[in-house]
C-alpha cells in the first residue's frame, strides 16, 4: 500500500527567467519510497525543477505538493518543516569550504537537530564510513579532496539527517566509470536504508538505468515521456530514443 502514496506531486509548473521560459507546465509525481530519475539535455531546467521543489527558487505558477501539502504561494518559513525533511546532493558539491569535512557532514545535525558536537562528529564519521571514506578524511578541508571524494562527502551530508526525500543533481558527472558505479551503489543503498524517496537528475544513462524505478524525460519545459527502465528500452518516442542513444540528429535540435 505504502508505495502508492504520493510523496511529491508537481502540477503545471511554470518558471521563466526574464523572457526565457525554462519550465513550461511540468507534471511529475514521485511516490513514497520510489526512485525517480529525470533525464534531459543541458540547460533544459532540471536543476531549476528540483530547486523549485525545495523552495530555493519560487515558481511563477503551478502546484507543488509535498505529502499532499501545497507549498507554492506560501512563505519559505511556512514550508520550513517540510523542507527540513529533504536532503540534497548538489551538482557541484557545494561543500562549505570554511568548514572541515566532518563539520560539513554534521552540519544539519549540529545546527538543526542541536546535537552536541562530540556526538555529531561520531555520527559524521559513521556516515562517512557508509559512503566509503575513512575517519582520516574527517578533519581535512573539502578543498583537499578529489572530485570523487567531494561527491561522497556531499552524499554523506545529504543523508546524514536521515531525510525522507533526497535530491541528487548529476551525482556521477565528472567521475570515472568505476567511481560513478560506486556512487550509484551508494545511492541505491542509502535510499533503501532510509526508505526515502529519491529524485535524481542525470545525463548518464548507465546510472539512470541502474538507480531508477521510473524515468522521466524533460524537454522544452515539459515532461514528454515517463516510464520504467524496461519501457525506456522499448519506447519509440523519437526524442527519448535520440537522447538515450546519444545521436546528434533527430527531433531535438541543439543550438550551437
Amino acid at each position: 500500500m505504502d508505495e502508492l502514496v504520493d510523496k511529491i506531486t508537481v502540477r503545471n509548473l511554470h518558471k521563466s527567467f526574464g523572457r526565457k521560459k525554462v519550465l513550461n507546465g511540468v507534471d511529475l509525481t514521485v511516490k513514497k519510497g520510489e526512485s525517480l530519475v529525470v533525464i534531459g539535455g543541458s540547460g533544459t531546467g532540471k536543476s531549476v525543477l528540483i530547486k523549485c521543489i525545495q523552495g530555493l527558487i519560487t515558481p511563477d505558477r503551478g502546484s507543488i505538493k509535498i505529502d499532499g501539502y501545497e507549498t507554492v504561494g506560501k512563505s519559505y518559513k511556512d514550508n520550513e518543516k517540510l523542507y527540513a525533511t529533504m536532503g540534497m546532493l548538489f551538482q557541484g558539491g557545494a561543500l562549505f569550504d570554511s568548514l572541515s569535512v566532518w563539520e560539513n557532514v554534521a552540519f544539519g545535525l549540529i545546527e538543526n537537530q542541536k546535537m552536541p558536537r562530540k556526538l555529531a562528529k561520531e555520527k559524521a564519521i559513521e556516515v562517512l564510513r557508509q559512503v566509503g571514506l575513512g575517519a582520516d578524511v574527517a578533519d581535512l578541508s573539502p578543498s583537499e579532496l578529489s572530485g570523487g571524494m567531494q561527491k561522497r562527502v556531499g552524499l554523506a551530508r545529504a543523508i546524514a539527517t536521515r531525510p525522507e526525500i533526497i535530491f541528487f543533481d548529476e551525482p556521477t558527472t565528472g567521475l570515472d566509470p568505476i567511481m560513478a558505479d560506486v556512487i550509484n551503489d551508494l545511492i541505491i543503498d542509502s535510499v533503501k536504508k532510509l526508505g526515502a524517496s529519491a529524485l535524481t537528475i542525470t545525463h548518464d544513462m548507465a546510472s539512470a538505468k541502474k538507480i531508477a524505478d521510473r524515468i522521466a524525460m524533460l524537454y522544452q519545459g515539459k515532461i514528454i515521456w515517463q516510464g520504467t527502465v524496461s519501457e525506456l528500452k522499448t519506447t519509440n518516442n523519437p526524442c527519448v530514443c535520440q537522447f538515450v542513444n546519444g545521436q546528434a540528429t533527430g527531433p531535438i535540435k541543439v543550438e550551437i
Binding site: Q54, L56, G93, A94, F96, D97, E111, T161
Partner: peptide
C-alpha cells in the same frame, strides 16, 4: 556561485 548558500537553506539554516 558554488551553491553553498542554497546548501545552507537545504540544511535548514
Amino acid at each position: 556561485v558554488t551553491e553553498q548558500i542554497d546548501a545552507l537553506s537545504t540544511l535548514s539554516t
